[in-house]
């Protein structure tokens, strides 16, 4: 169906220029003017995420590992976009994200969270995500430090309730889901996120291309 559609679009050359977005600037509509994330759209900060992780998540959306659940309106938004992109366009988009200069993020502190308790809970996270939340490419674990706290809360909840990590062929997602399920409640999620929030962003060292 998609192929037929593309042929049709190619025939309509007058509007072709409008349908092809140079430099994947589509990304910045949702993810913010420098891919720094946008709370209003619940779109994460992409600048801290290394190329391999961005690629992996495009795969996850295209494989229906993310965005499969009816109520996951935000996941479905990204899935719809991922489904219209071919491999070359995904690489273009990743390169485009790499070119965005980091911007300072607004700080929002959750005053009801217990950072010390969060630090204890984080013990089980650091084997994969690193002591500084820097991520680990070998283990396919993304960096966490520098990500928006509201996004981390949202994704821990998504793993916990099965919006992510619920597909048999999504092995990394399934592993993460088990850990998320070990967090007993919203307070535990808030606490561990508050601790991650206290870690300095390791963003600059993560940039794989200038």
């Amino acid at each position: 169906m998609n192929k037929i559609w593309l042929v049709f679009m190619l025939l309509s050359s007058a509007v072709l220029a409008d349908s092809k977005q140079p430099d994947a600037r589509y990304c910045l509509v949702c993810h913010g003017s420098a891919a720094q994330g946008n709370i209003a759209i619940k779109a994460p900060n992409l600048t801290i995420l290394p190329d391999w992780y961005l690629r992996q998540q495009f795969t996850a959306f295209r494989n229906n590992w993310r965005g499969s659940v009816a109520n996951d309106a935000h996941g479905k938004e990204m899935q719809a976009v991922a489904n219209t992109m071919n491999d070359a366009e995904i690489e273009q988009a990743i390169a485009f994200i790499r070119r965005q200069a980091p911007v300072k993020l607004p700080i929002s502190v959750n005053t009801t969270a217990n950072v010390q308790h969060g630090q204890q809970l984080y013990q089980q996270c650091q084997a994969c995500h690193g002591a500084q939340g820097e991520g680990n490419a070998q283990l396919h674990a993304p960096p966490l430090a520098g990500q928006h706290n509201w996004y981390l809360v949202q994704q821990l909840s998504a793993f916990k309730n099965g919006w992510r990590g619920n597909q048999s062929d999504d092995s990394y997602g399934q592993i993460m889901r088990q850990f998320a399920q070990s967090l007993p409640n919203e307070q535990a999620i808030a606490d561990v996120v508050a601790y991650i929030d206290s870690l300095p962003s390791t963003q600059s060292s993560l940039r794989t291309t200038p």
Partner: peptide, 13 residues
């Protein structure tokens, strides 16, 4: 006729 509908994930003519 021919207008581009710029919907994210569902572009149409």
């Amino acid at each position: 006729h021919g207008d581009f509908i710029d919907e994210l994930g569902s572009p149409q003519i």
